[in-house]
């Protein structure tokens, strides 16, 4: 799977955050307990949903979460970008569950959704993308809760909320506990080296054609899981924007020395197969990169699976981080 997501999606996420003001941070659900329903706070308002859903349709970012949480899925959207991060078992489930929508919100097949006879529909897309979906039509089929992505590191809260809506917190919490245990183990393993390093990250979404690179700071896609393992990323964006723009920016290559010159160590995103994406290669091929102190000190570390947005896939990221950072223990 390519690390580079479509610009439309990234733009949509950014726009979503601008319009929703990160509204999904309210993750509390209000259980009424009457008639088997409860009121759930989602991006699209307070929605009355079944207290214990039995037939769930999930789309977008909610798909991998629901699969990992063993939610009672009867329909999902296509989620090719996450296939490489799914376990064999989850991938089998993903392939088995009927597809009721494509990769894009506009590719929702309403008849297929209706045929699935869900009692809950969880939409994991940004609020503006909801405009591409006929929510009223979906609401005529089942209660709809929209829980879309916000800042990259917020996948923890968002996935919890999605699993909560589907009544699948038990399995979710089990995977979460495994992730947290693994992260704690890594933090312990690297406690003498990682916290002492000022780190910077080069992301995979820079636009080579524009001569820019993606500089990611803490809480971004490329950094948030490494932070769980004890890595400390320094700096912040010059001008905060919505969504991922709050924690990453796209400076000109000329600004590489200024941006990463103070880093003791640099991590960079690579594809799931370990190959270096074109935007990162562009940076690494420049003489400015070779002049950086961290590069001269040979403290550069590739990180795979930086797109992880679930605890299950996050564990693969932790494994990749462990493998990449291992040489630090020998220095």
């Amino acid at each position: 799977m390519s690390l580079r997501r479509s610009s439309g999606l990234v733009g949509a996420v950014a726009l979503a955050l601008a319009l929703t003001g990160c509204g999904s941070s309210d993750s509390k659900s209000d259980s009424s307990g009457k008639g088997g329903t409860r009121v759930f706070a989602a991006d699209n308002g307070k929605i009355k949903i079944p207290a214990d859903p039995q037939r769930v349709v999930a789309t977008g970012y909610a798909v991998p979460v629901m699969i990992e949480a063993h939610a009672p899925l009867v329909g999902i959207s296509s989620w090719k970008r996450g296939e490489s991060m799914m376990s064999k078992k989850d991938l089998a489930t993903y392939k088995k569950v009927p597809k009721v929508a494509g990769e894009l919100a506009t590719e929702t097949n309403y008849e297929a959704v209706a045929e699935a006879e869900p009692d809950l529909i969880v939409i994991g897309v940004p609020a503006p993308v909801l405009g591409d979906i006929d929510v009223k039509r979906l609401e005529s089929i089942a209660p709809v809760v929209a829980i879309g992505p916000t800042v990259p590191s917020a996948w923890r809260e968002l996935s919890h909320k999605q699993a909560d809506a589907a009544g699948s917190l038990k399995q979710f919490d089990a995977v979460k506990a495994k992730y947290e245990a693994k992260a704690a183990k890594l933090a312990e393993k690297y406690k003498d080296v990682l916290p002492q390093l000022k780190m910077g990250h080069v992301g995979a979404y820079g636009e080579t054609a524009k001569g820019t690179f993606q500089r990611e700071f803490g809480s971004s896609w490329g950094t948030n899981i490494a932070e769980d393992a004890g890595a400390k990323y320094y700096g912040k964006v010059k001008k905060k924007g919505p969504g991922s723009r709050a924690v990453s920016e796209y400076p000109s290559l000329e600004e590489l020395p200024e941006s990463l010159g103070k880093a003791d160590a640099i991590t960079y995103s690579v594809n799931p197969d370990g190959s270096v994406p074109e935007p990162v290669k562009y940076v690494m091929d420049s003489k400015l990169w070779k002049n950086l102190p961290a590069v001269k000190a040979k403290k550069t570390f590739p990180i795979r699976y930086t797109e992880a947005a679930t605890y299950g896939s996050g564990m693969q990221t932790l494994d990749a981080i462990d493998k990449s950072f291992a040489p630090l223990l020998n220095r």
Partner: peptide, 18 residues
Amino acid sequence: LPDTFDAYRFWSVGSLAA
């Protein structure tokens, strides 16, 4: 082909950068 669209998108607006 979304990936092809991505590749074309980067080229389609002329630039002298990089």
